[in-house]
Amino acid sequence: MTTRALLFGTGDTSRATDLGLLILRLGFGLSLAFGHGLGKLPPSEGFIAGTAEMGFPLPTLFAWAAALSEFVGGLLIAAGLLTRPAAVFAGFTMAVAAFVRHGGEPFSGMEKPFLFLVAFVALLIAGAGRYALDHYLRREPIRL
């Protein structure tokens, strides 16, 4: 697989699949960015302390990384720009939220980050689809 295919996909999906991917990207990407990431920027002392309690070294750095992966990653996913790398970062953050931060709680406590994780894994596998900026970046230039 080339780097181009890993980052941008192959583009061989149906219009219905592409529409479904667009809806998935917009719903989960914008929800993550504005419902969760924006409120964590800049990271509060409480968020940094919570990051330290989970055992992360350099908790300020990891709190910034988590907040940015949620906000910037969510925006990138919604736009369909560098969707697969953004899904990796956002998905990793959601895995930590689900299994570390909320790991000892009943499933209802970890359900929201788990659902985000599932959506981002699906986008990692399927790519952004035709209705994404990645699609236009992937296209070969016209040769005369």
Rank of each mutant, 00 (worst) to 15 (best):
T51N: 06
G129N: 11
T93E: 10
A119M: 08
A122E: 00
D134G: 01
T93N: 07
L32I: 15
F47S: 06
L22Y: 04
R15E: 10
A119G: 02
T2M: 04
F28C: 09
R25S: 06
A16Q: 06
G91N: 14
L7Y: 05
H135V: 01
L117E: 02
R25L: 02
G91S: 10
L75S: 08
L82F: 03
L68I: 15
G80A: 13
G37F: 04
D134H: 01
R130M: 08
M1A: 14
F107T: 08
L41Y: 10
E111M: 09
G9V: 05
A79E: 07
F34M: 02
A86N: 10
W64N: 06
P42K: 13
A5V: 10
T51Q: 11
A97L: 00
F56N: 06
T83G: 08
L124P: 05
G37K: 04
A87Q: 11
F71S: 08
A122F: 00
D12G: 13
G73R: 13
L76G: 15
L76E: 13
R4H: 14
F62G: 03
T83M: 06
G74H: 03
D12M: 11
L75T: 07
I125D: 07
F99D: 00
W64P: 11
L133S: 01
D12F: 14
L123F: 01
F47N: 10
V72Y: 02
L38R: 14
Y131V: 03
L38M: 15
L133C: 00
G91Q: 14
L68V: 11
F116Y: 13
L82Y: 01
W64L: 15
L38S: 10
G50P: 14
L82G: 00
A52M: 01
R15G: 12
L41V: 04
A90E: 05
F120H: 10
V96P: 03
E140C: 00
F107M: 12
T10G: 12
R130G: 07
G80H: 03
F62Y: 11
A95P: 10
E140K: 09
L21D: 01
A5S: 12
P85I: 12
G74V: 10
F8M: 04
L123P: 00
F28H: 06
L81W: 02
A98G: 13
A79I: 00
A66W: 05
E111V: 01
P59E: 03
S44K: 09
S44L: 09
R4K: 13
P43M: 04
L32G: 15
V100W: 15
A79K: 02
L21E: 00
R101K: 15
L133Q: 03
M1K: 13
D134Y: 01
L124M: 06
G80Y: 10
F34T: 07
A78H: 12
A97V: 00
P141S: 05
A86P: 00
P106A: 11
F56H: 12
A63E: 12
L81F: 11
F8S: 07
S31L: 14
G129S: 07
I23V: 15
M94C: 06
Y136W: 12
T51C: 09
H102A: 12
L19P: 05
T3A: 13
V100Q: 15
S69R: 03
A132H: 05
L82C: 00
F92A: 15
R4L: 15
I125C: 07
E53G: 08
G129D: 05
